Amino acid sequence: MARRRGTARAIALVLMFGLMAGLGPSEPARATGAESAPVRGPETGLPMPRYVSLKSGEGRARRGPNRTHRVDWIYTRRDMPLRVTAEFEHWRRVEDHEGQGGWMHYSLLSGVRTAMVTGDMVPMRSQPRPGAPEVALLEHGVVARIMSCEPDWCRLRAENQRGWVERSALWGIDPHEILD
């Protein structure tokens, strides 16, 4: 029986993919008594998990980290926020606000931070406080660029509107993350 070149590498990829698939994206790191260091991606050295956005108007999420794997999802919304949960060579495993996703080539992703509105008719305010005047009402699913985030509020840009939205109404930023 002839053995193809790269068979050992293919087996290693399958084993690595299996190990990565077995780790849940929201599974907490186990404490070892002392505060553990943040998890870093093996390819980029960036924190994991982290948020990115879709760079183009179309991105294919595949079953595995290779173009030969089946496409499970096609994202068609430029700037859509995605959460990176794993890295392998030039591939990133991402999930959307519903927890769906797959492996995408890194060239389809951007470090530009965006957020998706999870509530319906969420007020965008002129200042980061509940009683401030409303600038706009944002429907469920609106995607906006994050300009900055404080503990309870994020300043967003959606279309030609800029204003503050309560963090609890957004997906695409961690609860305690501060952005300048």
Results as ranks from 00 to 15, higher is better:
Ala2Ser: 11
Arg4Ile: 13
Arg4Gly: 15
Ala12Trp: 12
Leu15Phe: 09
Met20Pro: 10
Ala21Phe: 10
Gly24Met: 08
Pro25Trp: 06
Ser26Gly: 06
Ser36Cys: 06
Ser36His: 07
Ala37Val: 15
Gly41Pro: 00
Thr44Glu: 11
Thr44Gly: 03
Thr44Ala: 06
Pro49Asn: 01
Arg50Phe: 03
Val52Trp: 00
Leu54Cys: 06
Lys55His: 12
Lys55Asn: 04
Glu58His: 08
Glu58Ser: 12
Asn66Val: 12
Asn66Ala: 14
Arg67Lys: 15
Arg70Trp: 08
Ile74Arg: 07
Tyr75Ile: 03
Thr76His: 07
Met80Ile: 01
Leu82Thr: 02
Leu82Pro: 07
Leu82Trp: 05
Ala86Met: 04
Glu87Tyr: 03
Phe88Val: 03
Gly102His: 04
Met104Gly: 02
His105Arg: 09
Ser107Asp: 13
Leu108Lys: 13
Ser110Glu: 12
Thr114Cys: 06
Asp120Gly: 07
Pro123Asp: 01
Met124Phe: 07
Met124Pro: 03
Arg125Ala: 09
Arg125Ile: 05
Ser126Phe: 02
Arg129His: 10
Arg129Leu: 10
Pro130Val: 07
Val135Phe: 07
Val135Asp: 02
Ala136Leu: 14
Ala136Cys: 08
Glu139Ser: 15
His140Val: 01
His140Ser: 13
Val142Glu: 03
Val142Cys: 08
Arg145Trp: 07
Met147Ala: 15
Cys149Thr: 12
Glu150Thr: 15
Pro151Ile: 09
Cys154Asn: 02
Arg155Thr: 02
Arg155Tyr: 00
Leu156Gln: 03
Glu159Leu: 15
Asn160Cys: 12
Arg162Ile: 15
Arg162Tyr: 10
Arg162Lys: 14
Gly163Ser: 04
Glu166Pro: 13
Glu166Ile: 10
Arg167Tyr: 06
Ser168Glu: 10
Trp171Gly: 02
Asp174Ser: 10
His176Asp: 11
